[in-house]
Nucleic acid binder design. Sequence first.
RNA 1: GCGGAAUUGGUGAAGUGGUUAACACGCCGGAUUGUGGCUCCGGUAUGCAUGGGUUCGAUCCCCAUAUUUCGCCCCA
Length: 418
Amino acid sequence: MIIKPKGTYDVIDKEAVKMQRINRLIDYFCEFYNYEYIRTPIFESKELFHRSVGDSSDIVTKETYDFKDRGDRELTLRPEGTAGVIRSFIEQKMYGGSLPRKFYYNGTMYRYERPGNGRNREFTQFGVEILGSNDPAVDAEIISMPYRLFEELGFKDLNVKINNLGSREDRDKYREALVNYLKPHINELCSDCQKRFDVNPLRILDCKVDGEREILKNAPSILDYQSEESTNRFKKVLEYLNYLDIDYEVDDKIVRGLDYYDYTVFEIVSDTEILGGANTIAAGGRYNNLVEQLGGPSTPCMGFACGLERISLAMDEFEEINKRPLDCYIMYVNEEEKLKAIMLAQDLRISGVSVDYDTTGRSLKSQFKEADRNHAELLIILNSEDLKSGLITVKDNLTKEEKKIDENEIIDYIVSNG
RNA sequence: GCGGAAUUGGUGAAGUGGUUAACACGCCGGAUUGUGGCUCCGGUAUGCAUGGGUUCGAUCCCCAUAUUUCGCCCCA
């Protein structure tokens, strides 16, 4: 038997229904907020991700799917959505047109990691990016839009953790201060953090092992190392969030894993327990330098992304999700009736009625069961005897009321009852 | 990548070194020879993840591989 590759999964049954529902809401929401749909390639040149995500980050060094095609091109399956959008923005010279551009994407991403509950090697991510505006109102929208989307999907007790990383210079100053503070205590940190100390000291703030320790609680705060301009900007973002009624909490320990973030970074957390310890359902931030870093003109941007599998998993706690009911199920037994069923189904479908019928030759009894499995609202029971006199039996599956309708009026009857 | 656990029909699962692998749900058929969702009866794994090995004999013991899952690492 051939089985699916490790870390992939099939979306079927309930999962498929949930995914469709999530996707429809995403499309609806983004349209409402005036975001344009964008679809970029699933594979890009390897270099794109090395330059955007940061050469030193684990994502690029060991978690991407890299391959060479037959023309010896170095390619990478996209591990995230932002880089492709930025590349397109630059390559299509969108910076020459009216700004900002507001995009949303929704598609599969690839990451070579150990699969687990709600984490796969092929996974689906939805995200938005606003390119070309540094207005704090953009920060507020990028946070409030997913917040409201999650509320709409049924999430309760949402909270936003937000922090201000400031400009590159602000961050460099802070990094130095943090390193100086931690240096005397380095032996008290866990082994992972001792490694991080050299590679990415800011990550130590996020450590699960050392996070609760006094050393880190008393560490200097990045918020104290901001320029006045950056601090005022952050205040403005928070002010907007207040007016938008978004529940947030400033957390100066939030630093994101990627190199490209500056100024506002945030995570949306839900108190659901189904996801285990990790209850972050969306995350994002501002990246005002990335476009330039990738060879475009300096363009301030902000975005967020979230994994649909985790969203879907968390939604298991919410109300039962059912397939859309079928308007009508047609039953028959013999060949003559079957032909009628096929033609009737086509006419009804043309008239906008959702309809189905059996194609496995099962008994009438089983056809009733099949109709129920499909939550059919009306049952059409064809009978050769009645057909001779031009009559068709229609049964309401809720009230069990049965009527014989003239063949010529059947479409109108069903349309007006559906 | 490192460590632990698991893997029996469509599903949930019981089970034993030795003829036909419980039970339940589901599905299909019948009782009801064309009107169901209750009831009753019957059917439903050429087979216990895959490949080796031990054995007279393995689903059961051993090894390897795969997949799943938990923890670490990481998290867009």
